[in-house]
């Protein structure tokens, strides 16, 4: 087994295990911490593809910013056992059945598929450096890129507006 394959298996095991534990653990903070580990292991997957920029953006945005805010909010909320939402038994059984059926379908689909394309050849072309990425983003994908930035700006202004309104009501 090659080293890359070994690393891939270890990373995948970590990703799947932590993703499962995220939804399985009762304590919301533990769940958030598992999600952080999951995000960091996904960064490892990107690094296996040699996509350094994507990997580091994953680390900064998801692990470094979003999850810090998640954890921050959870710590401030200080959730206890009493705050737990109790679902009726029927819902739980239904959820179990849906989960089993869905995973059966997924397992069937993934075991039965055949690769359409062959393996990629290594041509040595630079596909991941920020120079290439910047050129592609600001030439070919200029319009979607600008639209995305306008969307982000609108979201940011919306957040400021919402938080301002709440303050006035007090």
């Amino acid at each position: 087994m090659s080293t890359v394959l070994l690393i891939f298996y270890i990373l995948s095991a970590v990703t799947l295990a932590t993703a499962f534990l995220t939804i399985y653990t009762k304590n919301p903070i533990h769940s958030a911490i598992y999600l952080v580990i999951c995000m960091v292991s996904i960064m490892g997957h990107y690094l296996l593809f040699n996509a350094q920029f994507l990997a580091l953006v994953q680390l900064i945005v998801y692990a470094g910013a979003i999850m810090v805010l998640f954890l921050f909010t959870l710590m401030l909320m200080n959730l206890n056992k009493e705050d737990e939402v109790h679902k009726p038994r029927m819902t739980r059984y239904a959820a179990i059945i849906v989960f089993i059926v869905l995973s059966a379908v997924l397992v069937y689909v993934f075991t039965d598929t055949k690769p359409i394309m062959g393996e990629y050849d290594y041509t040595g072309e630079d596909f991941q450096s920020i120079k290439t990425l910047g050129k592609v983003l600001l030439n070919e994908y200029m319009v979607p890129f600008e639209f995305a930035s306008i969307l982000l700006l609108a979201a940011m202004l919306g957040v400021v507006l919402v938080s301002k309104k709440e303050k006035d009501a007090n």
């Binding site: 952080v36 960091v40 350094q52 920029f53 580091l56 953006v57 680390l59 900064i60 692990a63 470094g64 910013a65 810090v68 954890l71 450096s129 920020i130």
Partner: peptide, 17 residues
């Protein structure tokens, strides 16, 4: 690496954990 400054920022942002 090509993106060392981003690496530094990534590590710093994880440091708060």
């Amino acid at each position: 690496i090509d993106v060392s400054i981003l690496y530094v920022f990534g590590v710093v942002s994880v440091g708060v954990y």
